[in-house]
Amino acid sequence: MSIPSTEGEAIYDVPGTGKTCKTWFKVYGDLKSNVRPCVLLHGGPGMAHNYLLSMIDLTTIYGIPVVFYDQLGCGRSTLLPEKRGDTSFWTPELFLNELENLIKHLGITTYDVFGNSWGGMLGGQYALRRPLGLTRLIVANSPTDMHTWITETNKLRNELPAEVQEIIAKHEADGTTDSEEYEAAIFVFYKRHVCRVDPMPIPVLDTFDVLKQDDTVYTTMNGPSEFCVVGGLKDWVITPHVHDISVPTMLINGAYDEATDEVVTPWFKELKHVKWVSFAKSSHMPHWEERERFMRVVSGFLKG
Rank of each mutant, 00 (worst) to 15 (best):
D214W: 09
D244M: 02
C195V: 12
N253W: 01
E166N: 13
Y218N: 11
S225Y: 00
E172N: 10
T249P: 07
D214L: 07
L160V: 06
S246Q: 12
E181P: 10
D215N: 14
P224S: 07
R192G: 10
A255G: 02
P201Q: 02
L251R: 00
T239Y: 00
I252E: 02
V210N: 11
V237C: 14
K155L: 12
I202V: 06
L156P: 07
E180I: 09
K191V: 04
F208N: 02
S246C: 03
G232A: 10
I202R: 04
C228L: 03
S246H: 01
R196T: 15
P240S: 01
E166P: 02
R157T: 12
H193V: 07
E163M: 02
Y182K: 12
G223M: 13
R196E: 04
E163R: 12
F189R: 10
D209C: 01
E166Q: 14
I168H: 06
F227N: 14
A173M: 11
Q165C: 13
I202K: 06
T153E: 02
I202P: 00
E226N: 14
S179D: 08
K234L: 04
G223W: 13
G223E: 14
V217A: 04
L156A: 09
N158R: 13
V204N: 05
Q213R: 08
V197L: 05
K170T: 13
N154S: 10
E159K: 07
T153K: 01
N253V: 01
Y218M: 09
E166T: 11
K170A: 14
T216C: 01
N222V: 14
G254K: 06
A162D: 12
E183P: 00
V229P: 07
